[in-house]
């Protein structure tokens, strides 16, 4: 029993793709650029003339399922295939999914994709059925990250590193206007 979340020290990201490869290898995600549970989004561009570039607005954002506490995907699924597990992770009953894609359309974060191997919609589940299932305490993307920018842990445990870092540092969530109450936090 836990309430898992993730915090990103996002400004440290160098967009090296280590997290994406680690995730795909750990979780057996099909190859192909379109298949992925997580990705890095390059926000804004370097502006201006080469000799006088403005690099101030460019940032690299870690994108994946935001583990909404009020998850639009869960409500949207006509088959009741989506549920929240005992660790607060939004999961899928694979056998109940018949690819209506309602969850994909409902998600404000574009977190889901079609897993063509298993004929379901798939997304990040914090390595719940691989690493966490074996009792490990880190996710694949977190442990491999050169910048160590991904904090993962139990939000309900005030002694967890993620709880401490969220208490110490200012942070924000993505698309707060959507009212989804994400459990993924971006550290300022």
């Amino acid at each position: 029993m836990a309430n898992y979340g993730m915090a990103f020290d996002y400004k440290l990201c160098i967009n090296c793709h280590a997290c994406e490869v680690a995730c795909k290898e750990e979780n057996g995600i099909d190859l192909g650029a379109k298949n992925h549970r997580l990705w890095i989004q390059e926000d804004a561009l370097v502006k201006g003339d080469f000799w006088d570039l403005d690099r101030s607005e460019i940032s690299f954002m870690q994108m994946q399922c935001q583990e909404c506490q009020d998850a639009p995907c869960l409500k949207a699924c006509p088959n009741g295939a989506i549920y929240v597990d005992e660790n607060g992770i939004v999961r899928l009953h694979q056998d109940k999914c018949d690819l209506t894609r309602a969850c994909m359309e409902a998600c404000p974060y574009d977190a889901r994709y079609v897993d063509e191997k298993n004929h379901v919609t798939d997304k990040c589940i914090f390595c719940a059925d691989t690493r966490l299932a074996r009792g490990e305490t880190t996710t694949a993307c977190q442990i491999t990250c050169p910048a160590k920018l991904r904090y993962f842990g139990d939000l309900d445990d005030e002694n967890s590193e993620i709880s401490k870092v969220l208490k110490e540092r200012e942070h924000f969530t993505l698309k707060p206007e959507a009212g989804t109450k994400p459990k993924l936090f971006y550290l300022k």
Partner: peptide, 13 residues
């Protein structure tokens, strides 16, 4: 190596 593997290291499989 400071407890990390890069994308290429992960893709060695």
């Amino acid at each position: 190596s400071r407890n990390m593997l890069c994308p290429k290291g992960n893709a060695a499989i």
